[in-house]
Design a protein around this nucleic acid. Structure first.
Lengths: 219, 219
DNA sequence: GTTTCAATACCCCAATTGGGTGATTTTCAA
DNA sequence: TTGAAAATCACCCAATTGGGGTATTGAAAC
């Protein structure tokens, strides 16, 4: 599946894919890749759905991923792609330098996080970097990442537990086998409210389902 | 909510509901109840859906439940009703004397298990019995229940773990956060097969969702 | 005093899930 | 050798779920 290899001397061909809804940027990136010896662009998708459908067949070495996509967020897409293609490295390429987005992208499995104002040369550097086990990110981003780790002191896996009391309560009931509907009845709040809380819980815990939330909750 | 009370001397009014798809049996039971002093029939449903919708409003003391229903099985219906009305006692009334059905009905929260060939007098006895904390069952059923407990020696809660290797494997992946779809991909089997296994797992573990299955699996 | 956040609730929509059936094939034990 | 489990896959259908919004209220933080 890996497309890299030594041909004759020491040519390492790196396959890429692009997930980016803006056609202009997609074109620019594709061209940059095509023009660079040693790089090849296997696929360019304009949304997450296509990415999740097509990329497993291509199994690129690296995916350049936008965050703002029309269907799923690039973070969701990253998380799912990583499940399907654990060896593929994902490089986030976005305008957002929001703390939480950066953190979540890396948590979702991204290997790097570049801001869109990054120059072509730096992008190519980042690709090389990533192939060599690096984690390229714009300097602004790197600082934020360091800061975020300071907050989660004691290092270790970036854990959670900033849940509100109500959220804890609901997660607790879920962990005791209650369905959302039953939780609503038990707490005398609407089913929709329970769902609202659940969505916030998922977001804070970086999970996507009751099953995963419960798994995190029971440690 | 409880409708029982002492009126004047020592009259204890017991409210009943019937869940039975056969109109003739429903009528017979309703009449039997109506004719008996101290008993009142609040509601007669012909399917599980109606039962789950209407009975929480009536909150009967006892529900007489058939197993063969057009939509959900009476066992499923029992399980769900018990969640909504923990204080309501459920009396299974069926032709099936299948071991597993009996076990599952009791596990789902039924308080008694009568075979349909039971006489009217015995049904009334069973209702009295149940109100006094008993667990009435036809003698054939009682024997089977005792036998089933012999199998699950060491007493305790009737536990599981008769899962096949494949089922264990799938439950294991679920417990590691994989979705059914991802499990199919990982094991190179179809999504439908994974779902099939999951349904069998649910049945064996007496649960109704991924969340609950995972909870049982992680102890 | 404005801003932020938690809690509440509702909408939309597509995908997933649970439950019920049914079918085929393999394997293994009685 | 007949039969019972397992494992595989399929189809139906309604309900639930996940993800995306938006909106109101009240309390706490600034």
């Amino acid at each position: 599946m890996r497309r890299e290899r030594k041909a004759g001397g020491n040519v390492m061909l790196t396959s890429l894919a692009i997930v980016e809804d803006n056609a202009a940027i997609r074109g620019t990136l594709g061209q940059l890749i095509a023009e660079t010896p040693g790089l090849t662009c296997l696929c360019a998708c304009e949304n997450a759905r296509d990415a999740l459908r097509l990329l497993p067949k291509h199994a690129p070495d690296i995916v350049i991923m936008d965050i703002q996509l029309p269907d799923l967020s690039g973070i969701e897409c990253t998380r799912r792609l990583k499940r399907l293609l654990p060896q593929t490295q994902i490089l986030i390429f976005t305008v957002y330098e929001d703390n939480d987005l950066i953190f979540r992208a890396l948590e979702a499995g991204a290997s790097g996080y570049l801001l869109k104002r990054t120059s072509s040369a730096e992008i190519l550097d980042a690709i090389t970097d990533i192939r060599h086990g690096g984690a390229p990110m714009s300097s602004e981003v790197a600082r934020k990442v360091v800061q975020s780790f300071r907050k989660n002191e004691a290092a270790g896996p970036p854990e959670m537990r900033q849940l509100s009391a109500r959220e804890e309560e609901i997660l607790g009931l879920l962990t005791r086998g209650y369905t959302p509907k039953e939780i609503g009845e038990k707490l005398s709040i609407s089913y929709e409210t329970v769902r609202s809380h659940l969505k916030h819980i998922y977001e804070k815990l970086h999970v996507r389902s009751q099953t995963e939330a419960v798994l995190k909750a029971v440690h």
